[in-house]
Amino acid sequence: MNNEHSADDHPHHDISKHVRRYMGVFLALLLGTVVTVAASYIPFKSNEVNIAVALAIATVKATLVAAIFMHLSAERWTIYRFLIITVVFAIGLFSLTALAFSDHIHR
């Protein structure tokens, strides 16, 4: 399908360069956890803000894991296609079920 440079055939010195990046991500994840916990004790204007902040940090952390640990930052389009479809459907599942509450008659 497409012929870019493969993520798998890095020569070995390349991998050792990656190792530093892995450590960086590890530290970022630890820090992110501390920030999430701390932020949850800050009384923002409303609970919704707390939720938004925590989910935003979680999304950043998850993106780091997916992009670096799972090598998604340099993956093939076949895989991206799978994931795009999946995420679209997952969002559909979330939003459409929640939409049931947008009317006053629910349950």
């Binding site: 459907f89 459409l96 939409l99 049931a100």
Partner: peptide, 21 residues
């Protein structure tokens, strides 16, 4: 086919907005 499922649920009282979608 992933975004039509609630046409099986029109009569559950899930509300008009969802129904129209």
């Amino acid at each position: 086919s992933f975004i039509v499922w609630a046409h099986h649920m029109y009569l559950t009282g899930m509300g008009a907005r969802v129904s129209s979608f």
